[in-house]
Simulated assay, not measured.
Amino acid sequence: MVNRRPLDRSATAAAPEFGRLIAVLFEARSPLWRALAASATVDRPVVVCDAVSPAQVVELTASPDLVLDGLLTVARAVGAHRAYLRTPPGIGAVAVRRALSRRGDAVRVVIDQTGRTGDVVGDASAYIRLAQLVS
């Protein structure tokens, strides 16, 4: 059960980044913006990248850094301390682990095969698109 209460934005350093991210996603008509806007009332939101379909695994394998850029942008904007990347074992997971080893982010990315639910859920292509929009 998720504890839902209004988030005190005055105490959150990421508030301007969150607002900018919502605006960018809304202008791009991305379906991810609704989930992101709804997460504003969650105490500690959970961000999930779903990359289980064959097409998503191919995108993840080809562009793990872009997927991670988008995933971590959302996680930082909503104040999440952990993000989950749902992908089957294989080359996609290996590519992500390799990309993660080159980073030093405060947000922990967990590679998950169990189907974790979250407050902000998007597929790999949504996070790639997001990384391209905000860069």
Rank of each mutant, 00 (worst) to 15 (best):
T87I: 12
R103V: 13
R44K: 07
V67F: 08
G104L: 06
V52C: 15
I22D: 04
L32C: 03
V52R: 15
T87G: 03
I91H: 15
G90C: 10
A62Q: 12
P88K: 12
S135F: 02
A23K: 06
V121R: 07
S135V: 10
R4F: 00
T12L: 02
V109C: 03
D69I: 02
D65M: 05
P64F: 08
V120A: 02
L100Y: 09
V67D: 05
V2K: 00
F18A: 10
I111C: 10
H81C: 06
L100Q: 11
T114G: 10
L71T: 04
S30E: 07
R4Y: 00
A95S: 13
R129N: 12
T41H: 03
V48Y: 03
H81V: 03
R76A: 11
A28D: 12
S53N: 14
A106L: 10
A37N: 03
G104D: 14
R34K: 08
T114F: 10
V57Q: 15
N3M: 00
A106C: 01
L21T: 09
R102F: 06
A40K: 00
A38Q: 07
A40R: 01
G92K: 11
H81F: 06
A99R: 05
E27T: 13
P89N: 14
A55C: 11
S10V: 00
D43S: 08
G70V: 05
S63N: 13
S53L: 15
E59R: 14
A126S: 15
L21F: 07
A40L: 01
L100W: 11
L130D: 02
E27G: 10
G70Q: 09
